[in-house]
């Protein structure tokens, strides 16, 4: 999906957030682009996820600023529900990127030329990529691997499915207590 500024309204339109739930949002993924008719769900044949070779895609390749706009975590839940496990782009909307980490989706930042190159290749033919989180590499058969960087903690959270609240409370409970105590004196008005 080689477009810039793909916003979270496009990823999951507000009207597709029909229930107070994180589940079942895949149906509404990219609804305005994916369906020629929203009501009957008739598909738009040109849309990339409707092409046969990408119906089972797990990696999404996109242009700059993917996931900009609304903070709705539903965008990430919809992508995950549809089957996307990793997104490769030159940059991401920051709230979206943080939401990815919370939900086990790998947001891979690569230089624009590299993203453009693999994006163009994926347009031309069926492209098989592996995002190796252990090695922090995007790998292609017969081609050199493209390294990316990711915070160790973020990586660990995705690999092990850690619960950040439990982590914070176990690692920093004393620091939080101490901060709150001194803060009550420093900023009693707050």
């Amino acid at each position: 999906m080689m477009r810039r500024n793909v916003d979270t309204d496009a990823i999951i339109p507000s009207r597709e957030m029909k229930r107070v739930s994180r589940e079942g949002l895949g149906e509404g993924l990219f609804a305005n682009w994916r369906y020629a008719d929203l009501a009957t769900r008739e598909e738009a044949p040109d849309f990339v996820l409707n092409r046969n070779r990408y119906r089972e895609a797990k990696i999404l390749i996109s242009g700059d600023n993917f996931g900009c706009g609304s903070s709705r975590e539903h965008a990430v839940w919809a992508l995950a529900d549809w089957g996307i496990g990793a997104i490769i782009a030159p940059s991401f909307g920051e709230i979206f990127q943080a939401n990815c980490a919370q939900n086990g989706i790998v947001a891979v930042v690569l230089p624009e030329e590299q993203v453009d190159a693999i994006g163009a290749e994926a347009e031309r033919r069926e492209l098989r990529l592996t995002v190796d989180l252990g090695a922090c590499e995007v790998q292609r058969v017969g081609d050199r691997a493209l390294p990316f960087s990711m915070k160790p903690r973020e990586r660990e959270m995705i690999l092990k499915g850690l619960d950040p609240i439990a982590l914070t409370l176990s690692e920093h409970a004393a620091a939080i207590e101490a901060f709150e105590k001194s803060d009550r004196t420093a900023r009693p008005w707050a």
Binding site: S71, E73, I95, N99, Q102, I165, T168, E180
Partner: peptide, 20 residues
């Protein structure tokens, strides 16, 4: 600043957020 729903849980439960 704006956050996601899961981060909101973290803020509610711990009174803090992890931020780079």
């Amino acid at each position: 600043w704006g956050i996601g729903t899961t981060q909101a849980e973290h803020a509610l439960a711990t009174g803090t957020l992890r931020v780079e």
